[in-house]
């Protein structure tokens, strides 16, 4: 059976990462991605949730997170992640220079390397929302691709 959309509600406890990424990987597989790509999609979503836990909730384990997984009409996946944590300056959402060898800062690079479309927004009242889209090979996104180049 192919799921066309799934919505998950969970809290910002790192223990939730493993079951959530298993769900994401299965969804991406059902959407038609090969094993390597669905593993990368699950990793990138893990990174987006981890960013929400670390930066949005500053390690708090009880912050609400909503994850919506949907199939793109033209083939592929659309993933939307909402939290109610601290809002960040969108201009500061940049991956770090990979020439630097230091801990941290790789998550954004992984997210942007994986998805063709990444869009971070401040939610109207509080929290952040990120929309990630990846078409299947050969399919196209229905809108203009906005993918800032990593340095």
């Amino acid at each position: 059976m192919t799921e066309s959309s799934i919505e998950l509600h969970f809290v910002s406890d790192p223990e939730n990462l493993a079951p959530v990424r298993a769900c994401v990987e299965r969804f991406a597989g059902n959407a038609g991605f090969d094993e390597e790509k669905r593993a990368q999609i699950a990793l990138a979503v893990d990174e987006a949730i981890a960013n929400s836990i670390r930066h949005g909730y500053r390690g708090r384990r009880d912050g609400p997170i909503t994850l919506r997984l949907a199939a793109l009409p033209t083939g592929g996946v659309r993933i939307e992640l909402d939290d109610e944590g601290e809002q960040v300056d969108i201009e500061r959402i940049e991956p770090r220079d990979l020439c630097e060898v230091r801990p941290g800062g790789l998550g954004l690079h992984i997210i942007r390397s994986t998805f063709d479309h990444c869009d971070w927004r401040r939610r109207p009242e509080r929290g952040m929302s990120v929309v990630l889209e990846l078409p299947l090979p050969g399919a196209k996104l229905a809108h203009a691709v906005r993918r800032p180049r990593s340095r």
Binding site: D46, E47, A50, V101, R102, P103, G104, L106, I110
Partner: peptide, 16 residues
């Protein structure tokens, strides 16, 4: 069987 960037960061820290 799986590692994310927090694992990588931990290994970079250990390397340093």
């Amino acid at each position: 069987t799986y590692m994310d960037s927090s694992g990588i960061a931990t290994l970079v820290e250990a390397l340093t």
